[in-house]
Amino acid sequence: MSDTGQHSHDHTPRPDQDGPPSYYQAMETAVRELLIERGVVTAEEVRAAVEAMDARGPAQGARVVARAWSDPAFKARLLKDGSAACAELGIDMGPTHLVVVENGEKLHNVIVCTLCSCYPRFLIGLPPDWYKARAYRSRVVREPRAVLGEFGTEIPDDWEVRVHDSTADMRYMVLPRRPEGTEGWSEAQLAGLVTRDCMIGVTLPKAP
C-alpha cells in the first residue's frame, strides 16, 4: 500500500517565501488575519504560541528521563502522574494527561496513534513525519517487532513488546532503562543519551 501523498509533501522543507503561496498557505494567512481582526486571537498570541512550541523538544523529555534515572522517588511520582511530575521540573504540559510507561528487564514499550497523530507534543515537541504516516500507524500495532527492526531495534524473542495506542485523552512517553556503565553520571550526562526516538520507543538508548 502506498503512502505517497504524505511523503511527497512532507519530506522536503517548504519555506514560506519562495514562490507564490500555495492554496493552503493563503488559507492560513487569510484565516489568521480574519481571526485577528475579529478579536478572536491577537498576532502576539500567535507569535508566542509558535515560540512556545519551538521551545519544546526532545531535550525537555530527556531531562525528565535523566531525573527519573537519578531519583527513584521522582520516578515513582512520574509513573503515578506524568504531567504533575513534569510540572515539578517547570515544564508546562498544557492540557496533557501524560502516562509514562517504563521499559523493564524484558519488557519494551512503543507508542503510536493509529487514528490520527496524538503525541506528547507539550513535552517533546512536534512529531516526526514517519510517526504521522500510514506505514507506521498501520503496522506497529500488528507487527511491532518488524517495525522496530526497521529502526534498527531488535527485541529479543523472550522479551514482551507492549504497544500503546493513544486513542483518547492520554499521551504517552516511554521511560527507557538506564544503560549499563553510567554509574555516577550527572543528570546532564544522562540526558545526553536520551533521544526522541527512545521516548517514542522505536529505539533504545545507547550504552556509553
Binding site: M1, V46, T114, A135, E150
Partner: peptide, 29 residues
C-alpha cells in the same frame, strides 16, 4: 488504519515551515 497492510516506514523528516507552525499555533489557541 491500525493493523492494515502498508509498506516500510520511511524515516525521512522535514523541518516544519513557519506557516505550518502557525497552523499549529492557531489550533492551540
Amino acid at each position: 488504519m491500525g493493523g492494515l497492510p502498508a509498506g516500510p516506514v520511511e524515516r525521512g523528516e522535514h523541518d516544519y515551515a513557519l506557516w505550518e507552525k502557525r497552523v499549529d499555533a492557531l489550533l492551540v489557541l
